[in-house]
Design a protein around this nucleic acid. Sequence first.
DNA 1: CCAACTTTGTCTATCCAATAAACTAAGTAC
DNA 2: GTACTTAGTTTATTGGATAGACAAAGTTGG
Lengths: 390, 390
Amino acid sequence: MVVSITGDQALVKKINMSLALETIRVHAPVSRAQVAELTGLNKATVSNLVSDLLEQQLVTEIGPGQSSGGRKPLLLLFNRHAGHSIGIHLDVHSFSIALCDLSGQILFEKLNLRLLHSDPVQVTEQLSSVIQELIDLAPASPYGVIGIGVGAPGMVDEQGCVLFAPNLGWEQIPLRQWLQDRFTHIPVLVDNEANAGAIGEYEYGAGKHVQHLIYVSAGAGIGTGIMTRGEIFRGAMGYSGELGHMTIDVHGRKCSCGNRGCWELYASEKAILDPQKSLPFHTLYEAIQAAERDDADALHFLYQLGEYLGIGIANLVNGFNPDLIIIGNQFAHLERWIKAAVLRSVKQRALQSHQQNLNIVYAPLQQRSTLLGAANQAIRSFVGRAKVTV
Amino acid sequence: MVVSITGDQALVKKINMSLALETIRVHAPVSRAQVAELTGLNKATVSNLVSDLLEQQLVTEIGPGQSSGGRKPLLLLFNRHAGHSIGIHLDVHSFSIALCDLSGQILFEKLNLRLLHSDPVQVTEQLSSVIQELIDLAPASPYGVIGIGVGAPGMVDEQGCVLFAPNLGWEQIPLRQWLQDRFTHIPVLVDNEANAGAIGEYEYGAGKHVQHLIYVSAGAGIGTGIMTRGEIFRGAMGYSGELGHMTIDVHGRKCSCGNRGCWELYASEKAILDPQKSLPFHTLYEAIQAAERDDADALHFLYQLGEYLGIGIANLVNGFNPDLIIIGNQFAHLERWIKAAVLRSVKQRALQSHQQNLNIVYAPLQQRSTLLGAANQAIRSFVGRAKVTV
DNA sequence: CCAACTTTGTCTATCCAATAAACTAAGTAC
DNA sequence: GTACTTAGTTTATTGGATAGACAAAGTTGG
């Protein structure tokens, strides 16, 4: 019975191959000599690896570059057109989908399509038909569509089964399997929407090269994607991060989860439903509209929303000491209204030492964070990153 | 400039060597054939690795075992006497220290020694002298004392510098370096006390083979050691887990950290100092004494302490979905008084789905969790575990 | 008691990837 | 035009894993 990963030459090649490919991807355009320099691999080794990569069409040669006092280097590029990836952000009432190349460049996208039903079977049906459209739109390429990634609200296990998505009303829906059955030749991945968002911003947005970040997906509820050393933090059974249901007020109001005083009751769209307040608007959209008209109630409401968001963020900062907090999902658009309040709360409540290198931003990818993160997960598993810790 | 880890034959050997050693350690007594079976390595490879390990005296042959229908197997044992490790639990007013073998068996220990001063230089002095005593006591062995591990309260960075330990009154103390300067030939490691506790319980206590656990170190304050997939979770700059300063009551009292309503104000020894309560006891010890006499105030106080501890634990459960919560440090002794209250809070407040496989225990290693965890970190870095993710 | 079979562990030839060093190619500098 | 630099390839070597043959040491059943 084979369980563990053993070392052999195939593994060595895998490690060095992915190291070379990543180096080319990040530092492109780059010469073989530079890759050798950057990775610490021997020139000959790099030459061998690169010739394999050229054969696999994952890398292209774009001709000679400028000389630095000797023979001109032959510059290499990661071939982002070798294949395409499809990313999906499944939200509670809508979804967004995009087709992108291997560098995350979007070729086609459809944003905020309404879900026609909430029933998981019918949702799968609707998703599948749009996915097929994008597959048909994909330009010819050596590898075709190499994967489909989905970011879904709620808890998702390692098999891509949606265990619990209260806002969708789903339980134990093997979404990945259902989609995989439709697209048998394309790997399908399903992860939590906030995790995907964190990955998206890490790869293509605010978090480029920031190794420790937290993506706070605030909208209908709150979810968090926590990244350390460039890796998503996963709890037991592969899922975690229901930090929206962290108690911030022991004596607070009852939450649907059974607890009291959950963060997301005060810092997500759910705050509008606070029975004690009887606010003159019923959705976030309406609140913003009112705020645009300088409505005092709305402005005050949004400020409070920011304060509470900041309280939870301060907790995250104390607990994880991230370098970057990214406020995403619908709240990415609220910067204008909540920025000051969020900063005030965090400044007041987070440990001084943890605030030194802290940055708080509003997802620059906006509604595309999760989309691109999901697509990126498919890309990752295609190009296959091998890592070693000694 | 060499940055990344590249693959070569030495790496392959390292990976397989550590795999073989770990397999022998875990499954001992075991034959070469079984190791090959268990790891997936070739018989010849295992023979080679084992002969190296025998030469290095990390493994011993203890003669033939029972035949299963053919030649008798030659049984192998991990040589836990190849060297010794020293583990230290540094607390606010006291420290504990032990000398143990490579399997974590304690040979000598000194528990709860009072710190004579709180000044870091003098603390280092005192620690060093006791460490030297234990080094002198260590039996002769091939490798001698292979490392010194320290678990310290507060934030510790990757270099073993105590960045911030409010309860000790320390800031920016390069404890590891200071100790390393004293014991130049023995590697010194310093980590957070709760992280070490988590490792201790994972390796030798309640958490054996439980991949996702949280060690809640409750005493003078609260610290948490979070373990996923058998690895300690570390935030930015290598430290994190100041979850004792997570807000659980937005309108709560002021904490020394600047925030309001921090968990540890209500669920650690600090709860005794609540000015609103003016309790008739001033230390946890006194409270327990009173409770032993069935003092109503004390019993009620301890019950509340348990409730608040449970509230924070529920947050942890929602956030990390662990399989096991271990309540350690001084609170490990409070099971009798707080168990019901803790369970009640958690049951009431944690997500139902996360409670399914959840277990809550009181550190069976008691005051030795951190000690053994710290010693184990030294052992780990000595036997050198290599891991690969593909 | 012996022949057939099993299991354990080692030996041998082979493979494969990385590597150093030599080498070719193609430029610059003065 | 000679000396030097830099880029990339070729060649011989190294070291570890592997399959398969083999030796060692047992069991089983007639």
